[in-house]
């Protein structure tokens, strides 16, 4: 979707604000939210792409106003309710529904070291056809899906060069909507900054974007 999350090339956002000696979490609730996010993901009711899309669905003004972990809080409540792990009433009351059974968490203390290793999204065993090869000139498709996509707005319709084939990976555009992994080849594509931004860019600058096979077309 053409949401406010798709920020590459936007202007007017101001200077980068740095913080000296920044802590990992600015307050304990941020750490709890980070951990809750990992722990509820272990239920495997949704996937990483659906999780990213849920953040994209936060209304634009809220998205820009909220801190990072506030967005996670909002996203996680939506996911928990949508996928039936809690009800809206339970969120509002803060209490389990009367008479509801207690579940067994899939991630317990002993499972944490293994859980720190993220699942792989590579699907080398899947059958897929590589339509492009390294060195080939390609164009990023001009497409504007209303759902989730990882094809940034600023690259659409632009010409670049495939520099590497990463192998076969889960396709986020379908996976985010539970329409299957539909694995396809993923490439690193190099775009000249001048192709993306015009004469104002340095002719020595390049942007490399990872793109799935179906994001690309032949030139």
């Amino acid at each position: 979707m053409n949401g406010v999350h798709d920020m590459g090339g936007m202007q007017g956002m101001g200077p980068v604000q740095r913080e000296q000696n920044e802590p990992v979490f600015h307050s304990p609730w941020e750490g709890r939210m980070y951990a809750i996010n990992r722990a509820i993901g272990a239920w495997r009711k949704w996937n990483i792409d659906a999780g990213r899309h849920e953040i994209e669905l936060i209304p634009p003004a809220d998205y820009l106003r909220m801190s990072y972990y506030e967005k996670w809080l909002t996203r996680n409540i939506e996911l928990l309710v949508k996928h039936g792990l809690v009800t809206r009433e339970e969120i509002d009351s803060g209490k389990p529904a009367p008479g509801s059974a207690k579940a067994a968490p899939p991630l317990t203390l002993n499972g944490v070291p293994a859980a720190l290793i993220r699942g792989s999204y590579m699907r080398p065993e899947a059958s897929a056809k590589a339509r492009f090869k390294s060195g080939q000139h390609v164009r990023a498709r001009n497409m504007n899906p209303v759902g989730h996509t990882r094809l940034p707005h600023y690259a659409r319709g632009k010409a670049g060069t495939v520099i590497r084939n990463h192998g076969i990976f889960v396709f986020p555009d379908t996976n985010a909507h539970f329409l299957g992994e539909q694995p396809q080849y993923l490439y690193s594509v190099r775009f000249a900054a001048r192709e993306l931004w015009g004469e104002q860019a340095s002719r020595r600058d390049f942007v490399f974007i990872d793109m799935w096979d179906s994001y690309l077309e032949r030139i």
């Binding site: 709890r32 951990a35 809750i36 579940a103 968490p105 991630l107 499972g111």
Partner: peptide, 23 residues
């Protein structure tokens, strides 16, 4: 966040010790 965590712990959705270890 505090309210959400205590709800999830009470319902058995998350293990608070696992959360401690992740943090």
């Amino acid at each position: 966040t505090k309210a959400l965590e205590s709800l999830l712990v009470e319902k058995g959705i998350v293990d608070p010790k696992a959360l401690d270890a992740l943090v």
